[in-house]
Computed example of a mutant assay.
Amino acid sequence: MNDIRASVIIPTKNPGMIFQDVLVAVTSQKTDWPFEIIVIDSGSKDGTIEFVKQFPQVSLIEISAIEFGHGRTRNLAISKSNGEFIAVITHDAKPVDCHWLANLVSCAEHDERIAGVFGRHIAYPSASIYTKRELELHFEGFDAFPIVHLQDKSRYSNDVGYRQFLHFFSDNNALIRRSVWETIPYPDVDFAEDQAWAKLIIEAGYHKAYSKAGAVFHSHDYTLFERFQRSFDESYAFRRFFGYILCSDLRSGIRSVSALSWRDINFAKKTGLLKGSPGVVLHAVIDNVMRVFGHYLGAKGDRLPAAIVKRISRDKKLFAQ
C-alpha cells in the first residue's frame, strides 16, 4: 500500500550552483508523513546530473532537450510519482524553511475541493530593491483571498481582471491534488502551463488556494533585454491561450510606462533612493519601458515571422540550449 503523502517534482536544465541549495532544502523538509523527490532533467551539462546522483533518496528522470515541454515534462514526472499531492517547483526556487512542504499540504487538506495551491515567492536577499518590492506587492494582493473559486459567471465572462485573478497560479512554487490532475493534467503548451491549468480547474468548479507560509526564495534581476524577452513571452502566451492583450497600442503603452515610472519614482523619493542611488531609479524606469514594449510586441506575436519570435523569445532560447 502506497504511503507517500506528497511528491516533489523539480524540472532542471543547467540550473547552476543555485540548484544545489534548492535540492538540499527540499531533502531537509520535516513532515509527519513520507514524501518523495523526483528531478526530471532535460539535458543539463553543468554537473546537475552528477550532483543529483549523490542523493539516493532522489529519483532522477533524464530526457533530451528536444523532448521538453513545460506541461508535457511536468506531466511525465507526475505520472512516475506516487504522492496524493504533488509539489512542483523550479530549479531556482528554494524553500524558505523546513516546513515549506508541510505548509502547502496542510493548505490543500483544508478542503477537498481545493485542486491546487500556490505559495508565496520571496526575493533572494541579493535581489534589487525594486525586485523585492514588486514581489511583495504582488503576493500581498492574495492575502485577503486565500481560497477562491468561480462564484460569478457573468463577471468572469466580462471582467478580465477577475478572470486573471482567479486563474493566477505559479508552479515555481505550487501543489496540486493528484486526483484532479488525473482528469485535468497540465496542458501541453509552450508557456504559462500553470495558469492554463488553473483556468481549467477554476472553470471545472474546483477551488484554488494561496499559502503565505509555504514560501520559497525565487526572484530574477533581469537585464533590460531579458526583461523585454520575458515580457514578450508573457504577452504572446496570454494572447494565444487566454485572449488577453497586455498592451493594445503605443498610446496605452505610454500611459502604462508613465504610471509604472511615477509609482517607482515616488517610492524612490520616500525611501531616499532617488538621492542615494539615482542610477537604480533610472534603471527601473528603463525597465518599465522594456516591460511594456515587450507586452506590445507580444500582443502582435502572431503577425511576426517565426524566425523573429524565436530570436526574441527568452524561454525558447533557455530550453533550446
Rank of each mutant, 00 (worst) to 15 (best):
H138M: 09
H218A: 12
P95F: 01
R113T: 14
K80F: 07
T131A: 11
G279C: 08
A93E: 03
G276A: 14
Y236R: 08
F68R: 01
K80E: 08
E84I: 00
S170W: 00
F51Q: 02
H218P: 04
E112N: 12
G47R: 06
F225K: 14
I18Q: 11
R303F: 11
I286S: 04
F191V: 09
L250A: 05
F238C: 08
P15M: 09
L200K: 11
V52I: 10
I245S: 12
K212Y: 14
G294I: 05
P11M: 10
Y206V: 03
D92W: 00
I38R: 01
N2P: 11
E67Q: 12
T31C: 14
H99T: 05
Q195K: 09
K199H: 13
L150G: 04
P278S: 09
R74N: 03
I308F: 04
P146A: 01
L250R: 04
A259W: 10
L200N: 14
A127C: 08
K275H: 15
C247K: 00
E203P: 11
A259K: 10
I265Q: 13
L135Y: 15
D32C: 07
K316C: 07
A127R: 08
P146T: 00
A87E: 01
Y206C: 06
F85H: 04
S252E: 13
R113D: 15
I37Q: 05
D143R: 11
D111W: 01
S235N: 04
P278D: 13
T183Y: 09
R74I: 09
N14R: 08
H138N: 04
E109F: 06
A284W: 00
Q195D: 08
V285H: 10
D152M: 02
D190L: 13
E136G: 03
A209N: 10
A268W: 13
S313C: 06
Q54E: 12
R239N: 05
H91F: 04
G116D: 07
N2K: 13
S252V: 09
G141V: 02
G69V: 05
R227F: 06
Q195E: 15
K45D: 09
R303V: 01
F293Y: 09
F293N: 00
R177D: 11
V292H: 07
G43S: 03
Y186I: 06
